[in-house]
Each structure stands twice: as C-alpha cells, then as structure tokens.
Design a protein around this nucleic acid. Structure first.
Length: 115
DNA sequence: GCAATGACGCTCT
DNA sequence: CAGAGCGCCATTG
C-alpha cells in the first residue's frame, strides 16, 4: 500500500476540529502522529489547495494567535472566519485557548462545561 | 542524497 | 508580559 503523506493525516485531524474551536499546530501534529512536527502542519496548510474541505482557519499557533503567512490579508480572512464561528478575539488579536481550545478526549470535561 | 526552507514550540532574558 | 534565540521534523529543489 502506498503510504499516504503525512499531510493527509494532518488534514484528517484538522477536519475533526469542531466548529467554534481551535487547535494549535503542535496539537494537530501530535494527533496526526507527528509529535514535534508543528512546522510541518503549517507547511501542510500552506500547501492546502483551494477547494479542499479543510477548516484550516481553526488551526492557530500555541499562543492562540493567527500566524502570519506570505500572503497579506489571509490572516484577516482567518480571523473573520473564526469570528463567524463564535470565536472571540481580544485587543491583542489573540483568542483564549482555555475557552476555544479544542480538547479531544479531555479528562475533566465531565462537568463544568459550557459557560 | 544533501542542503535549505517553513501558517511552529519552548526557554531564557 | 513581551521579545529574541535555538531546536525539531517533513517536504521541496
């Protein structure tokens, strides 16, 4: 069998990110089976083709901020898409990962959730 | 096959 | 809390 590129796994993980939530590159990398390869996640997003059903907008850096890329305006687009999903940004242009951060199989979500 | 790049992450100052 | 430097890993030339 042909071993699928790591990108395919990365895209699969990104697709699993629920709406209104964001995941960091490092987290996506770890879930994709590439711990420490956060850079490659960003690289995979850059290689993402227009039309691909991948919510790349939900992928941000560990600081909860939108990373800058070679195309000006794209950051603004990402922020707009996230705000459209209910993600709130502060004056510094950063979002609260504790609130919007995606936690798959979390341990303490048993109670206290939603608000 | 080697060298450089790159939407990052973590630690120290 | 903010800024700067080094490290990691996969893809491309």
């Amino acid at each position: 069998m042909k071993a699928p590129s790591s990108y395919a796994r990365i895209y699969a993980v990104v697709r699993r990110i629920p709406k209104g939530r964001v995941a960091s590159y490092g987290q996506v990398a770890a879930l994709a089976g590439l711990p420490g390869a956060a850079r490659q996640v960003g690289y995979a997003m850059a290689a993402l083709r227009p039309g691909a059903r991948v919510p790349w907008q939900r992928v941000v850096n560990a600081r909860g901020e939108i990373s800058a890329r070679g195309e000006p305006g794209a950051e603004d687009l990402q922020r707009l898409l996230l705000e459209r999903e209910g993600v709130r940004f502060d004056a510094a242009g950063r979002m609260d990962l504790a609130r919007h951060g995606w936690r798959p199989r979390t341990r303490s979500s048993r109670r206290a959730r939603s608000k």
